[in-house]
């Protein structure tokens, strides 16, 4: 159907681009296994042996496990909070869509998604300082959940509106309250949407930079990106150890991405994507 040379040329270009995209991963792994002397001699040469000292060094100095534990807590808690709050709101708005008040609330949330975090940065810092929420995990959990909530609600509304009313009506006839109907009938039906939102929100929460930079300034509460933001700056001379630290933290999130890739693609192409 297509010209053969065009097809081959296209494949070659794709492979070159893919090699460029893969290069940063390869260089990270390479540098993580090399000694300082080997790196000074030649950045790109292969190491004489696999030096795992860098990893041991990095684990000792980079506070990796503490920050990973913090990241895990922040990610899990903020995702759960978003799922509970957004599924309830999305259900109510989706079912009461004909009412002005609910539609108004939806448009307020849409507008909120366009507010850049930079416009909230200074007031949030001030408010958090006043409330003693700076440098606390609950503080950052609530903030990340709040920032990600409008997108989750929008996604739920879209799905709820495609779910027929019959099941709920049957549950109501059997005497279930709205809340019981939601928990027993609706929430299970929403599962595909819940998975998509959970996966995207988990990725955003794990990698959050903006909110964390304002709220998390003490070592004890730092998440992985915050820890590395400081660590990479301080250890700019000791590349090999820094790359070992980088590789350790890349592994879980890259694995997560690979396993969840279908859900991420689904969520990203579902229409509304967060910036």
């Amino acid at each position: 159907m297509k010209n053969r040379t065009t097809v081959i040329l296209g494949r070659v270009v794709l492979c070159i681009m893919a090699a460029i995209f893969l290069f940063p991963f390869l260089i990270s792994i390479l540098l993580a296994f090399k000694t300082k002397q080997e790196t000074t001699k030649s950045v790109l040469a292969l190491p004489s042996a696999l030096h795992i000292e860098n990893f041991i060094d990095a684990i000792e100095k980079a506070n990796i496990f503490r920050s990973m534990a913090n990241s895990l807590i922040v990610t899990a808690a903020s995702v759960i909070l978003v799922l509970i709050v957004a599924s309830m709101a999305g259900y109510a708005i989706g079912r009461q869509y004909h009412k002005k008040g609910y539609k108004f609330y939806e448009s307020v949330l849409t507008a909120a998604m366009m507010v850049p975090f930079q416009s909230l940065m200074i007031p949030i810092y001030r408010m958090y300082r006043g409330l003693g929420l700076l440098n606390t995990l609950p503080g950052i959990i609530i903030l990340i959940a709040g920032i990600n909530m409008p997108f989750a609600i929008m996604t739920y509304i879209g799905f709820v509106r495609t779910v027929p009313m019959e099941l709920e009506e049957a549950a109501k006839l059997e005497g279930c309250t709205v809340f019981q109907t939601f928990v027993k009938v609706i929430f299970p039906i929403l599962k595909p949407t819940t998975v998509t939102i959970a996966v995207l929100d988990a990725l955003w929460a794990w990698n959050d930079f903006n909110a964390s930079l304002i709220v998390l300034q003490k070592n004890a509460v730092k998440t992985v990106p915050m820890q590395q933001y400081v660590f990479f700056g301080e250890h700019s001379a000791d590349y090999n150890m820094a790359f070992a630290a980088a590789v350790i933290t890349m592994i879980p999130v890259v694995l997560f991405f690979l396993v969840m890739q279908k859900h991420i693609e689904g969520g990203m192409t579902a229409g509304a994507v967060k910036g």
Binding site: V85, A92, Y105, L120, G146, I147, M149, V178
Partner: peptide
């Protein structure tokens, strides 16, 4: 049950007020 639906919005309104609406308004002041 129309009233029952409103209570479903309350948690989201609280979270939204705390993380977006209140900072937004206090930002206007600052």
């Amino acid at each position: 049950n129309a009233k029952g639906y409103f209570w479903f919005l309350v948690p989201s309104i609280v979270l939204f007020a705390f993380t977006v609406a209140v900072p937004f308004v206090s930002g206007l002041n600052i």
